[in-house]
Amino acid sequence: MAEQVQDDSKRDFLALSAYVTLGVGTVAGTLGILSSLTPSADVLALASIEVDVAALEPGQAVTVMWRGKPVFIRRRTAAQIDEARGVALGALKDPQTDADRTIEGKEEYLVVVGVCTHLGCVPKGQKDSDVRGDFNGWYCPCHGSHYDISGRIRKGPAPKNLEVPEYAFLSDTNIKIG
């Protein structure tokens, strides 16, 4: 009977290739499943909208839906713009100038996502009859966050300013959001 020769390297190869395949397969499969739960192509396709703001008078505001969220568009009066510019950066929790939050030459229009940066409620202040909070902008009733006329957080639990979405003026009165 021939002497039994042990060549462990073959077994090691089998074990190693099995583990590697299992490992790579598990990771790839898990990533695929997790990724299937992220926003799908049709949701992403709805990701930009166009809004005509020709009818908006100074002092008026409209709310439009974008990506399932409200977007506040406010055409501000000269006095309101002055008020927004007059705030010292030191007084802000999330320091940003009004110029950082508007498009040059179009400072009249403030475009912000109408979702409180605390836990996602829609702040009040779009309607004339709404309470506007201590800083004459928006007020979130859920846990009491006050935003100013530039949409910046001034008081309350919200950590950040109302988000300014990516947007551009296609014409003088046509805004593309997203």
Binding site: L34, L37, T38, P39, S40, V43, A47, R67, G68, K69, V115
Partner: peptide, 16 residues
């Protein structure tokens, strides 16, 4: 965003 399956609470959220 991953939990919602979108940019807000919507149909994908309700389904899951």
């Amino acid at each position: 965003t991953w939990l919602w399956g979108g940019f807000s609470v919507d149909n994908p959220t309700l389904n899951r």
